[in-house]
Write a protein that binds this DNA or RNA. Structure first.
Length: 319
DNA sequence: AACTGATCGACTCCAACCCG
DNA sequence: CGGGTTGGAGTCGATCAGTT
């Protein structure tokens, strides 16, 4: 971001549960749903689930322990019986509905770079990730095509992992994050192993939940490649051979986010990585993710994550 | 070094329109 | 009907200057 003024939008930085007024679909951030910005697990006693179609910027795994339920993913009603898991990729419109008062369930939320520090896929590119390169994404990619329902014995293992994660999350110390990551990978890996045949067959047929236009793909690629400098809507639109206004609408429709919102989200994800894994000064981190003004960067960071960049760095190093 | 306040203009949003 | 464009009004993010 150089000297040019950078822009806003009616759809500013998502406030708690980003209101998408056009569609009524909200986009939640970790800070909206969790005290922690990296990982959270909670059960049905903590708070009711969101029962309206919504998206989030993070990964989500839901586990229905008992009781009738169903979930709706991208408008398609899917099974979600007792002893089953559902895996939700960032930005997928979905919701789960449980039988009132009768269901027991767990919800796990985790940030996009929680499993791998070097995770470099843009959220929308995740939908077409290779399962050889990103095996941990497999159940997320094929949610809606496979019902991840377990037998009693297998689910005992799943439930034990969930309970273990809940205990770890409740009392974090130095090293706990690594244990949480390990247990989470075990949960995902266990699921992938149990459904390996179906998942490999789907992967072989290159079945995806939804395709996106080439134009949008060009846009997201361009944004990711130029995050570190000033990018204007006009420039991106030109690179994607679209009109700026149409690009604005397209992005909103596909992601629920306005151009600057999306750009800032990607910038902040990269900033989080730099803060937790390098000793770069705040000024340098701000510059590296395209903010010429560290002050402004700090404010946007706090707005998004509920804490300052330095506070975030301390928290990450301490946990 | 990190953060806040005040200001201004780039961008979003929306409705109407074109085109195939 | 879906993909794309146009144009104007109002919003809110980027910046500079100042403070902690």
């Amino acid at each position: 971001m150089t000297s040019r003024r950078r822009p806003p939008a009616g759809a500013a930085e998502p406030r708690a549960g980003a209101p998408d007024e056009a569609s009524g679909i909200r986009t939640y951030r970790m800070v909206d749903r969790s005290d922690r910005l990296d990982f959270e697990i909670r059960d049905h006693t903590v708070r009711p689930p969101v029962v309206m179609p919504h998206r989030h910027e993070f990964f989500q795994i839901e586990a229905n322990v008992s009781g009738e339920a169903h979930h709706v993913l991208a408008g398609k009603r899917c099974r979600y019986p007792a002893r089953s898991l559902i895996f939700i990729l960032p930005y997928r419109v979905h919701y789960a509905a449980h039988e009132p008062g009768a269901s027991e369930y767990y919800v796990i939320n985790f940030a996009t770079n929680f499993l791998r520090h070097d995770f470099d896929l843009s959220p929308l590119d995740m939908e077409e990730a290779s399962i050889a390169e990103y095996p941990e994404l497999t159940p997320f990619l094929y949610e809606g095509h496979v019902d991840f329902v377990f037998g009693e014995r297998d689910f005992r293992h799943v439930l034990a992992l969930l309970q273990h994660l809940a205990v770890l999350h409740r009392d974090r110390k130095l090293g706990t994050i690594e244990r949480i990551r390990g247990a989470l990978l075990e949960l995902i890996g266990f699921t992938v192993e149990r459904y390996a045949d179906e998942l490999e067959a789907l992967s072989g047929r290159r079945v995806y939940m939804q395709g996106r236009t080439d134009a949008l793909r060009r846009v997201l690629k361009f944004i990711d490649e130029h995050l570190q400098r000033d990018i204007s809507l006009n420039e991106v639109a030109e690179a994607a051979f679209l009109s700026p206004n149409y690009l604005s609408q397209l992005l909103k429709k596909q992601t629920g986010m306005a151009f600057v919102e999306w750009l800032t989200a990607r910038r902040m994800e990269r900033a989080q990585h730099l803060l937790s894994h390098t000793g770069e000064r705040i000024f340098a981190v701000a510059n590296a993710v395209g903010f010429a003004d560290e002050a402004y960067f700090t404010r946007r960071f706090r707005q998004r994550f509920g804490q300052s960049p330095s506070g975030y760095r301390k928290a990450m190093r301490g946990s």
